[in-house]
Each structure stands twice: as structure tokens, then as C-alpha cells.
Design a protein around this nucleic acid. Structure first.
Lengths: 133, 133
DNA sequence: ATCCTTGCAAATGATTTGCAAGAGT
DNA sequence: ACTCTTGCAAATCATTTGCAAGGAT
């Protein structure tokens, strides 16, 4: 298990119960939206409010602890910041799977006259399980 | 100029003034969000309501006339559906530029055990103009 | 001790809905 | 003529804010 307290402090954020709980929830789920975090986190901390989650999601994004994954027609999900990767998003079951970006693709993302900061590669389709149904 | 009436009918939608106006607005801008469409479209059709835009954006997405481009921390933008391409999104000026996906990258997007439907490749960074400022 | 964070309730903003009147085929 | 679409206002849902009390360093 990652040490969420250290993670927060490394990014200049105070380590509160609320923040470590939110991080634990994101980490456990992999990719999760705000309402789902709220549902999850309430079990251990019934008084933790939605407003607190909103405030901290914004803060932790700014401080690069987490990353937003924008979804088509759905609420954004969030994940812990890690190396760049692609998302395979199943349009049937909503599941998101991480996949590495091949070196060839990496190269193709180097574009003339554009300074790349962050690449979002989201592939929408059907996961293995949903293909067979 | 594309014929929006034909475009709509081909996708089983009635051709109303409201819809052709929205399409014209999207086409003109390239990438545009709902509020911007509203501002634009009101000039010619002051009575056209926001609710109508929302309803039609949903409908035209379902009928594959337009495509949503989800933005990090901003309202989604919309574009006319066309061949797959990448988006170079400038984090400074907000401008979006379309770029083709190289054949090598195309290949790399063919993933085992995943049926690809639609690829969203969004590169966030600085455009040429904003680099020099 | 100080400054930051939380939780609540209220405010704001975005999106959706119901319905009667009007438009498209 | 028939059915779908529009515009309005109201309803709902999502997100943000202000503030007093509590927590982290």
C-alpha cells in the first residue's frame, strides 16, 4: 500500500483524514468519479461532506497528486497520477483499463510546433467480457 | 459550404432552422461549446433557446452528426463528425487544432481483446503562437 | 499559535423536463 | 394530418461559496 500521507506532503498538502480517505478510495477503484468516491468514503467517515471532496479533488489536481479522466457524456473520473498510459473504456460496462503507450505511438505524439504537456488517449469500444455478450 | 439539410436528413433528423443554425455555428467554429453556440446562434435567431440547443446536441450526437470533445476542467466542445484525428489543445489560449493520426499510430491503437469504436486523442500543451510569448 | 481545512447550509450554475403552440414532411 | 420540435418556465442536478469551529504542523 502506498503511503498517502507521504504522497500528500510531497506535494505540499497537509495530510488530513479526509484526503487520505479520498486517495485510498481512488487508488482502490483505479478510476472513479466524485459521487462514487463519496459513497465509498462515507462508509468509514459518515460526516465527510461532498463539498470537501470537491474542494480536495480540485486541490489535488492542481498539486498533481491526481489526474482527471474526462468521459464522453459522463462525469469525469479521477486516478492517481502515474506514468502516461492509454485508457480502454468499455461503452457497455463502463470499465476502464490502462494500457501502455507503445514507443512508436510516443514518437508519433511529438508534433512540430507544439510543446506537449500531457497526452490523453482514450479508446472507446467494447472490452473482452462485453464482446462475448 | 456543406448542405446541413441533407446532412440532417441522412441521419434521420428533421431539418429545422434551429438545427441547421447550430450545425452552421459548429462548422464555422470547428470546435465550440454549448454557451458559445448559443451566443452565436442568437444573432440570427434571437428566440432560439438554450434548452433547444441542449436537446439537439444530445440528439445529433446520438445520430452521429456531431461528436463531443471532452475537455479537462472545462465544458465539452462539439465538432462535426469527420474522419478520426487528434486534437492539439493549447492550454494557454484554448485553441484546438486538428491533426491526422499517422498510420503507425493507427496500428498501435488496434488492441487485442478490445473492439475499438472511437478514439479520442487529445494532446494538451502549447501551440506555436503561445510558445513564443 | 498560526494557518489551513472541514462541514454545513445556502447560493449559484448547468442541464433537463413538461407542456402547449408551431413547424416539417 | 400527423408527428416531431420548439420555447418558455419550472424543476432538478451539479458545483461552489461563506463562515464558524476544529485540526495539522
Amino acid at each position: 500500500m502506498t503511503d498517502y500521507i507521504t504522497l500528500l506532503k510531497e506535494h505540499d498538502l497537509k495530510a488530513t483524514i479526509q484526503r487520505t480517505s479520498i486517495l485510498k478510495s481512488i487508488d482502490k477503484a483505479g478510476h472513479i468519479n466524485i459521487d462514487e468516491i463519496y459513497e465509498d468514503v462515507k462508509e468509514q467517515h459518515p460526516t465527510l461532506s461532498l463539498a470537501t471532496i470537491y474542494k480536495n479533488i480540485i486541490l489535488m489536481q492542481q498539486n498533481k497528486v491526481i489526474v482527471e479522466v474526462p468521459m464522453n457524456n459522463q462525469k469525469s473520473k479521477y486516478e492517481l497520477k502515474k506514468d502516461e498510459h492509454m485508457h480502454l473504456i468499455c461503452e457497455a460496462c463502463g470499465n476502464i483499463q490502462d494500457t501502455i503507450i507503445s514507443p512508436q505511438t510516443q514518437e508519433a505524439l511529438v508534433i512540430k510546433n507544439f510543446t506537449l504537456n500531457n497526452a490523453q488517449i482514450n479508446l472507446y469500444g467494447l472490452c473482452q467480457t462485453c464482446q462475448s455478450n
